[in-house]
Design a protein around this nucleic acid. Structure first.
Lengths: 165, 165
DNA sequence: TATTGTTATACTCTATAACTATA
DNA sequence: TATAGTTATAGAGTATAACAATA
């Protein structure tokens, strides 16, 4: 890999050059872990597991027509969310019934109670997040969220299979 | 990002209110996964595992005096990095020798070759990241990296044990 | 035969416990 | 006795394979 010479940024030019900033992944991955850890007590207080919350979030966005589609949408394995759906169903937070048109697939939707719980939990979580962001100037904060949203949207477009499939 | 009704947080006040943005964790965690996936081919090309790269990065920052300290610094378990250190040592990328003052602890440092490899890999990785960021206006990009650095620094300050530790 | 959901199994990653050596 | 490192073991999380129901 010899020449990183003429390039634009040339993050590490000479032998002992240090990079101008840490790698994005090296910052984002631990930060993600920390944010999840911060969410955990809130989820615990509501008796929701992390994947269960992800399901409630996704169902609220758009009704989904099969469990496999839901699983893929939240980046989970289809076998992994079954127990989650069992629990949510038993607690009356979601509807899960066979599609009359094709009784193999399950129609998944949120019950009013599920929506209420989702809203309450998300309000709690985002309240904490806003406190975290409040320490920054509005312009930086705004740029952060804007870029994050765009990168996140782009990332979820390439969930697993990648380009070559 | 928009002023919501009256109260401070109140992200979702009424019943049907949708949040103004996705949860930070819901964006950051999948993004972290995607970034790691993007790094993987680069690491593979250099024969480095993810944790090995983390070790090289951390050793370059500051020489470390014990494996346990290194493990904690990169958010790993002390037992998990042993095989990693074995490999890096065998390949001549790090020095690992007993401290003469206390022969229980190992002094860990980067060899010149290890530094070269680290620089090469990081240059590759950050080149890709810069391409990713290039799509955004400089101001947003700047705010993003700035806030990210601050949040990341704050997060690593609370690695595991948390307050009551 | 193909597909959805489900269950059972195996694998990977990570954390805990037990052991060796130094102090 | 206490600590750093190592090894062995067990656990959580995840993915793969086999199965039943429906088309």
């Amino acid at each position: 890999m010899g020449e990183r010479a003429g390039g634009k940024g040339a993050a590490a030019e000479g032998a002992g050059e240090r990079a101008a900033r840490p790698d994005l992944a090296a910052m984002i991955v631990p930060l993600g872990r920390a944010l999840m850890a911060a969410e955990q007590p809130i989820l615990d207080a509501h008796g929701l597991a992390m994947w269960a919350y992800a399901v409630l979030l996704r169902l609220d966005t758009t009704p989904i027509r099969s469990q496999a589609a839901l699983a893929e949408a939240i980046g989970a394995d289809k076998t992994r969310i079954i127990a989650v759906l069992d629990d949510l169903d038993a607690r009356g937070l979601i509807h899960r019934r066979p599609d009359p048109d094709d009784r193999r697939v399950r129609l998944l939707s949120l019950t009013p109670e599920g929506r209420r719980l989702r809203d309450a939990v998300q309000a709690d979580i985002q309240r904490g997040e806003e406190e975290l962001l409040a320490q920054f100037p509005a312009a930086e904060r705004d740029g952060f969220v804007r870029v994050l949203r765009a990168l996140s949207a782009g990332a979820s477009a390439t969930p697993r299979g990648t380009a070559s499939g």
